[in-house]
């Protein structure tokens, strides 16, 4: 009853509870907004790395296509190795330099290609008509300590030797 009387006898000023409640509401709203911006920024960053990964995959594919087209003899040791793919010894490429002032926050990706798959279309009677090539680019997003690379870009292409 006393408490009720006290509450009823409010003289119109803001009390401590109201201030704290207001601050809590403002705090929650601010945290949610900042988190939203942070998420959005993270997605933009990810998109940037993904675009770069596509570019790296395509560049690597261009190299392999060029090799098959004009500089490829399956009997040659070097080319026989190339034909097997480099899954066990992928290349490491800088994907995102991130903060220019911090050399330790760079994101690297691993680039490798699978074995060249010969495609022989029986109707041509020419032996191997073209080669199918597959390229993978894998990377981890910043602040990920996982040893497994979680993000991947996959490219598939084909090329025919020049003589054909």
């Amino acid at each position: 009853m006393k408490l009720f009387k006290k509450w009823r006898s409010d003289d119109g000023s803001i009390d401590f509870i109201q201030i704290v409640t207001g601050l809590v509401i403002i705090g929650i709203a601010s945290i949610a907004t900042i988190d939203g911006f942070h998420q959005g920024y993270g997605w933009l960053d990810y998109q940037n790395r993904h675009t770069k990964a596509v570019s790296v995959a395509r560049s690597y594919m261009e190299y392999l296509q060029g090799r098959i087209h004009t500089d490829f003899q399956p009997a040659r040791f070097e080319d026989a190795q190339l034909m097997q793919g480099n899954r066990n010894a992928p290349l490491e490429v800088l994907l995102d330099g991130r903060d220019p002032d911090d050399p330790n926050d760079n994101v690297f990706c691993s680039v490798h290609h699978g074995p060249f798959l010969p495609v022989d279309r029986p109707e041509t009677g020419e032996g191997v008509d073209y080669w199918r090539i597959r390229v993978w680019v894998d990377w981890n997003e910043p602040n990920s300590n996982s040893p497994v690379l979680h993000h991947q870009v996959f490219f598939e292409g084909m090329m025919l030797p020049e003589g054909l």
């Binding site: 570019s55 395509r58 560049s59 261009e62 190299y63 296509q65 087209h69």
Partner: peptide, 12 residues
Amino acid sequence: FEKEYNNRVYMR
């Protein structure tokens, strides 16, 4: 801030 954009092309 400086950034490089690069690509390799094979002129078929």
